[in-house]
């Protein structure tokens, strides 16, 4: 059931024939864990909260710094030095008091911690900024059989893919861990090459949209597909993918 406030708040999206009251209730009953409350996490959290996703978890161990403000639109100068997850929780709860928000003020580096937190949610969003954490999340999400929505950015380029464990290609099928060292260097290089807010805005919004469609059961998802967005040329390319039958992560059940 939706309250009077909820009916009024979501009126414009309930009018969409593919959503309706029924879809809105699906969103209300849904939950998701957003890992990373930075550039990608900002639009993802804002859009999922405003759309009425009933329960949202946020994981991040970082504090807000002035160098975040070119792209992390959840934060402003009053937030500098504060834990990102606490600021993010407060802001999205104010945006939508009808939802429940859980903040985990920690870095995800250990498998056991990741397992404990991820298990509490039925879907996972990877909005992190490094491949070490991305591999960990992919591994745990596949083992727990949780759908995983992945966003990644660099300069003007964004990439999005959706992993349905044991059904579609996982992160490791395409970027196998045997290249870990290379991808750690890539993380470094990515940081040095920089990032602009509009790229995380577009990319994070696509990630949030994938989760909403998944929850509503509408449209088509980036399953077995990698979307590449190039903000310089406005090109959206979709690369088809297939599972690696020998993938060390998702071929073992």
């Amino acid at each position: 059931m939706l309250s009077k406030d909820e009916l009024e708040r979501y009126d414009r999206q309930i009018r969409i024939d593919k959503i309706g009251i029924e879809g809105q209730i699906k969103l209300k009953n849904s939950n998701v864990l957003v890992i990373g409350a930075g550039g990608l996490g900002s639009p993802i959290l804002l859009y999922l909260a405003s759309a009425g996703v009933g329960r949202i978890g946020i994981v991040d161990g970082d504090v807000v710094s002035v160098g975040n403000l070119n792209r992390q639109i959840l934060y402003n100068i009053d937030d500098i030095g504060k834990a990102k997850v606490l600021v993010a929780k407060e802001k999205i709860e104010k945006l939508n008091p009808n939802i429940a928000v859980e903040a985990y003020n920690t870095w995800l580096t250990e498998e056991e911690t990741a397992r404990i937190i991820l298990r509490k949610f039925t879907a996972i969003i990877d909005a992190t900024d490094n491949y070490e954490t991305r591999y960990l999340i992919n591994r745990v999400a596949v083992h727990l059989n949780r759908p995983l929505f992945i966003g990644a950015v660099g300069r003007f380029v964004g990439q999005v893919m959706v992993v349905i464990p044991h059904e579609t290609a996982c992160l490791n099928c395409i970027f196998p861990e045997r290249e870990k060292q290379i991808l750690f260097k890539l993380t470094e290089e990515n940081r040095n090459q920089g990032i602009i807010g509009t790229t995380v805005g577009v990319t994070g919004t696509i990630v949030a949209n994938e989760f909403l469609k998944y929850t509503l059961g509408i449209g088509s998802l980036l399953k077995n597909k990698l979307l590449i967005f190039d903000g310089l040329t406005n090109e959206f390319s979709i690369i088809s993918l297939e599972r690696d039958p020998n993938c060390k992560i998702c071929s073992i059940i």
Partner: peptide, 10 residues
């Protein structure tokens, strides 16, 4: 044959 490169920032 498809050729591309990954990005990893967030």
């Amino acid at each position: 044959v498809s050729v591309f490169s990954p990005v990893g920032g967030g």
